[in-house]
Write a protein that binds this DNA or RNA. Sequence first.
RNA 1: GGCGGCGUGGCCGAGUGGUUAGGCAGGGGCCUGCAAAGCCCCGUACUCCGGUUCGAAUCCGGACGCCGCCUCCA
Length: 460
Amino acid sequence: MRLFDTAAQEVLDLRPRHPGEVSIYVCGPTVYDVPHVGHGRFTLVWDVLRRWLHFRGFNVRFVSNITDVDDKIIQRAEREGVSESAVATRFEEVWWSSMAQLGVLRPSVAPRATEWIDSMIELIETLMARGVAYPLGDGIYFDVSAVADYGLLALQPLESLRAGARVDARRDKRSPLDFALWKFAKPGEPQWTASFGAGRPGWHTECVVMSLGLLGEGFDLHCGGLDLAFPHHENERAQAVALGRPFARRWAHNGFVMSGGEKMSKSLGNFTSLTDLLERTDPRAYRLLVIRSHYRSPLDVNTETIADAERSVARLDALARRFLLPRLAGDGVVDPVAAWAPEVENFVQEVTRLLDDDLNTPAAVAALFDGVATANSLADQGDSSAETWAHAVATLFGALGLSLVGDEEPLPSEVADLVVRRDEARARRDWSEADRIRSELESRGWIVEDSSQGTKVRRR
RNA sequence: GGCGGCGUGGCCGAGUGGUUAGGCAGGGGCCUGCAAAGCCCCGUACUCCGGUUCGAAUCCGGACGCCGCCUCCA
């Protein structure tokens, strides 16, 4: 498996710390609001990677945090007159519910920042003892000049970053890039006692503590949205470097979700919430949309691209119906396949090669759609290998977390009734009646297909 | 200002120095009572200008346009 490493700026072999095992840390959400579609993208991208690594035989340990203490949570709690923990709990529930709908696997461990405060305090004490953290009136700050290669993930040296820093009202920081490790509590705010003063942690500290605490030094891969590369990941790394502890071996970042050519984000106010999207769309359409583009490219999510993806999913579902394929992904992972039928070996090998090469899902999806055509074509010719092809396609899509759905759902009785009446009409070759019933079914939102087993309907 | 990325056919979106990406939409055909689904065929694209080359959308240089990071952000 090869992945583009943000620090090295090139595609590198993954080379896990322990052969056969991959440890991944993904920066999770701050739970102060409903997730937007950008959260959906990053969770899908890294879910696909996780599933693919599993399918390739790796034992994957996947940690992703919940940030449940933060300025924005405090602001919202104040605005709504409720406790901070009530806000965090509420939006964490929304988060997991959205993840479940998306078919994103639950992390192996999902630590909450507030459960790791003691470790963060210890870390800050150590940094202070080493002279790389200093107190100011409102908190404890990290001195970025202590890290020789600060700017690694920003692809810029410290001096250049400093020159570009926007005017900071604060003149007391040693450098405008210095960041808060700890914020002293104001009255009424959540706080924890610490030797250096009561308060709460800064954002960049929790991920260092939790990733090292749960995955250990030199864990394999640290992932997140591109906007986290700097300063969040840079600052995590800076702390680890200052502590002398080996941190992530590789860094991977996904591209943004765009809206009208602009990055979609809450601060720009141009976001679509993930919950809205999931209400009106088959979540599989979003997964397909995501894997149809490369994870590092920007991705435009709008009604057109989603509708396009939904129609593509319909083509896959038609395959599942035709071959009675089982649903494979969703809650569970698709396990490695020990041996493939000889006729699909090359096909599987090609898809594997593409995915192993920096997770080239768009090329893999293209190959898989070729596989769809092959399966259908072989079946049209009555070739018995068609089934093997269909299963291979479904298995590989399943390995990426996309289930093909061919099951027929139970029909409402009046629909079932119409189906029976239409079969009767067709049996006596009463085409006008058969067509009338078909129109009626269609007007009720059902797609009608004739088959050797009679009328079949499915929801539009 | 510094740094990074991108400009592909109607839309989305891969890729390679010379031979079909793929999906969606559209057109034609087969199948069907008619459909649907499926299959076959079709568009001959790569911002512009130079250069390298037998040959470049693919390499180099330049121009133009767009986006992102440098501030909370996935």
